[in-house]
Simulated assay, not measured.
Amino acid sequence: METFFKIFAIVFTLLFGYAIAVQYNDPDAFKWILIYLAAAAASILFLMRKLKPIVYFILTIFFLVLFVVYWPETYEGVQLDHGMKTVNIEEGRESLGSLIAAAVMLILGMRTRFVNKSKV
């Protein structure tokens, strides 16, 4: 099971890194680079066993708040082809990216808590 979570963390570190790389043409690129950088860093620190579960749970809440805040007024999907057609599509992408990050942080936090509890 340990191998699964290591692979999981590596895969999401790479995916968050990809999300950082494609922010170059985003109107608010710097903000989203920092947001995805936090998720990538937390994934790396999971591999190094450097964070306590509470940090992952705080990040989960942070990403859930972003999910709600950036949910578009009218959901039009995320249409990955042809760039951003409307603000609703851009906000949908940002919102769903935040939800994915929240889910990953929750999983990493639960795993960290489970491993820490089993060592006691």
Rank of each mutant, 00 (worst) to 15 (best):
I107N: 02
A103P: 06
A103I: 06
T112S: 14
K6R: 15
F46R: 03
E94S: 05
V78H: 01
D81P: 05
F16I: 05
V87P: 09
V55M: 09
K85D: 14
V69C: 08
T74D: 11
A29S: 15
K85F: 07
V65W: 00
L45I: 06
R49Y: 02
F8C: 04
V115E: 09
S98N: 08
K117S: 12
R49V: 07
L66R: 03
R49W: 05
V104R: 05
L96V: 03
A40N: 03
Y24C: 10
S95L: 01
E73I: 00
F16E: 00
I10N: 08
K85W: 01
A102S: 03
F5M: 09
E2M: 10
I54M: 13
M1K: 09
I35C: 02
L34R: 05
I35G: 00
D28G: 12
I58W: 09
T60A: 00
W71G: 07
Y75S: 12
F63M: 03
W32F: 02
S95R: 04
V65T: 15
T86G: 09
T13C: 00
T3V: 14
D28A: 12
L15Y: 07
K85S: 13
S95E: 03
V68H: 01
F8I: 04
V115T: 10
L51M: 06
L34E: 12
K50N: 11
A102N: 02
G77T: 11
F63L: 01
T74V: 14
A21P: 11
L45R: 09
F63G: 00
F30K: 15
I58V: 15
